[in-house]
Amino acid sequence: MRTAIVFNHPYEKSYCNAILEAVSNGLKKGQHEVDLMHLDNDGFNPVMSKADLKAFVEHKPIDPLVIDYNKRLEKADHLIFIFPIWWDLMPAMTKGFIDRVLCPGVVYDHHPRGFGLVPLLKDLKSVTIITTMNKPKIMYSLLIGNLIKKAMLRSVFKAMGYKNVNWISLASVKSVSQEKRLKWLLDIERKFAKWATITNHFCRQSS
């Protein structure tokens, strides 16, 4: 099984980086192949230029990195996003990935009858979004309205027709104890080790 991870955080000692390590370790224990798309290290440009938009409409990407990401997405069985929530939404690079990489003709297409969208990544079995934030979870839910859930789960992947979409939200990261942060990492590693093992077993049984 091949799991693509889209990672976005510029600081190498961030908690998001610790999450990335925990997720990767868990997946490898479950014998998943991990394909990391590190947007910051790859120098991904989130800006949609005039040329990019023309290529987007024509279903013919021109940016070599976007083309590379597209090819890797087509090979993925699972897709994981890891990023911090800044000002209640995703960072610019993650938003740019959604705008420029999740493009028609590759990730989705318009329904032939004109009703909604249809998914094109036939091998993709699940999408998982993992976020960190400093707000309490209840404040983000009640006051802000869980914008990540609305913007990424509903308005992007579910709108495209992908059904198995999940969100792991880690809140109040700066204010919780170091022990709790370490426990979260252990839980995440165990979750993805077990999750990878279960999905591998299911695919062997189905093949």
Rank of each mutant, 00 (worst) to 15 (best):
P136Q: 06
K194G: 01
F44T: 08
V47P: 07
V57L: 10
R190M: 09
A4E: 06
V176Q: 05
L20R: 11
A196H: 03
M152T: 03
P91F: 04
A22P: 02
H9L: 01
K163C: 03
V6R: 08
S175D: 12
G26S: 11
K71D: 12
Y162H: 07
D99S: 10
A55E: 00
L147E: 05
M93S: 11
S24T: 15
S126F: 01
N164M: 06
Q205Y: 10
G30F: 01
L186K: 15
E21G: 06
I5Y: 04
K163S: 11
W184I: 05
A55N: 05
E12M: 12
A51E: 14
D40L: 04
D63C: 13
F97I: 10
P64I: 14
A4R: 05
I188M: 06
Y69A: 13
L124C: 03
F115G: 05
D40P: 00
I198L: 14
G114K: 08
D35N: 15
M152G: 08
L39M: 07
S49H: 10
V47C: 12
I130C: 01
A4H: 05
V176H: 01
E189T: 09
P46G: 13
L182G: 15
A18K: 14
H38C: 15
N70H: 15
L117M: 10
M48E: 11
K13T: 14
E179S: 15
K29S: 11
E33W: 01
L89C: 12
P119T: 01
A159N: 07
S177Y: 01
T94H: 07
F81P: 03
I19K: 05
L153W: 00
M160T: 07
W87F: 03
V47M: 13
A151P: 03
K54C: 05
N25E: 12
G114I: 02
P136M: 08
A22D: 02
S172L: 06
